[in-house]
Simulated assay, not measured.
Amino acid sequence: MRVMMIVKATEDSEAGVLPTPEQMAEMGEYNDELAEAGVLLAADGLWASSEGARVVFAGGVPSVIDGPFAEIGELMAGYWIIRVASMDEARDWAKRIPFRDGVVELRRVFEPEDLPAR
């Protein structure tokens, strides 16, 4: 199964504060561990919401709202997508992320076989 590990935004990430060189090195080591274990499919950090936009659909009509967005705790600052055997394995990997503070949400990704046939 694929699992997305979603890094929730913080005031610092929304202010554009970048990780320190030490934090980058720790994260690089963690990413290397994921890759060496063969579970890492993708990983990226995201720019602050001030650099983004939302497309909202109402009655089938799209409208665009430019960032920044106020609800920091609901925003994403980055993610990993990993392939693991179970959510327990995903939890184990998430608990090893070298964060001092923060929240990472784990969400299973739909696979084609999870969806109804057409």
Rank of each mutant, 00 (worst) to 15 (best):
A37K: 04
R83I: 01
I97E: 00
S86Q: 13
D88L: 06
A15H: 05
A9D: 01
A42V: 05
P21L: 10
I65C: 11
V84D: 00
A35Q: 11
G16V: 12
L18P: 00
D12S: 05
Y30D: 01
I81V: 03
G59W: 13
M1S: 07
V109W: 05
D32F: 11
P62I: 10
V109G: 09
K8Y: 00
W80L: 01
R107V: 06
T20Q: 02
I65H: 14
A70T: 06
G60W: 08
A94M: 14
E74D: 03
A90N: 12
A77D: 09
A77E: 12
E105P: 10
G73R: 15
G102P: 13
E111K: 08
P19M: 05
G45T: 08
P112C: 13
K95Q: 10
Q23I: 05
R107T: 11
V84N: 02
W47S: 14
A37Y: 03
G73M: 04
A37N: 11
A77N: 12
S86G: 14
R2A: 00
F57E: 09
D114Y: 15
P62Q: 05
W80N: 02
S63R: 13
G52D: 01
E105W: 14
L40S: 00
E33M: 12
D101C: 06
P116V: 10
A117C: 08
G67S: 11
V7M: 09
V64M: 03
E29C: 06
R108E: 04
D92Y: 08
D12M: 04
F69C: 00
G52N: 02
R54K: 15
V109D: 01
R83Q: 13
F57L: 15
E111V: 11
G45A: 15
G60Y: 10
E11L: 09
L106K: 10
E36R: 15
I81Y: 00
A94S: 12
A94L: 06
E105N: 13
V109P: 03
M24D: 10
L75Y: 01
P21D: 07
D101H: 14
A25R: 14
G73N: 06
E89A: 02
V39F: 07
G102C: 09
R54T: 12
A90W: 02
I97F: 11
P98M: 12
A42W: 07
F69N: 00
L46E: 01
E11P: 02
M5E: 01
P21F: 05
G59C: 03
L106E: 08
A85S: 13
D92F: 09
E51C: 08
G16R: 07
M1Y: 04
W47N: 13
E89I: 00
M76V: 10
L40N: 02
A53N: 09
P68R: 03
N31L: 06
E22I: 06
R2V: 02
K8C: 01
L34I: 05
G67D: 04
F57P: 07
V3S: 04
I72M: 05
E111Y: 11
R83Y: 04
W80H: 02
E26L: 09
L106Y: 08
D114W: 14
G60R: 10
E36I: 05
E14A: 08
M5V: 07
W47P: 07
G59L: 12
R100L: 09
L40I: 00
A85F: 06
M4S: 09
A42L: 08
V104F: 04
V103Y: 07
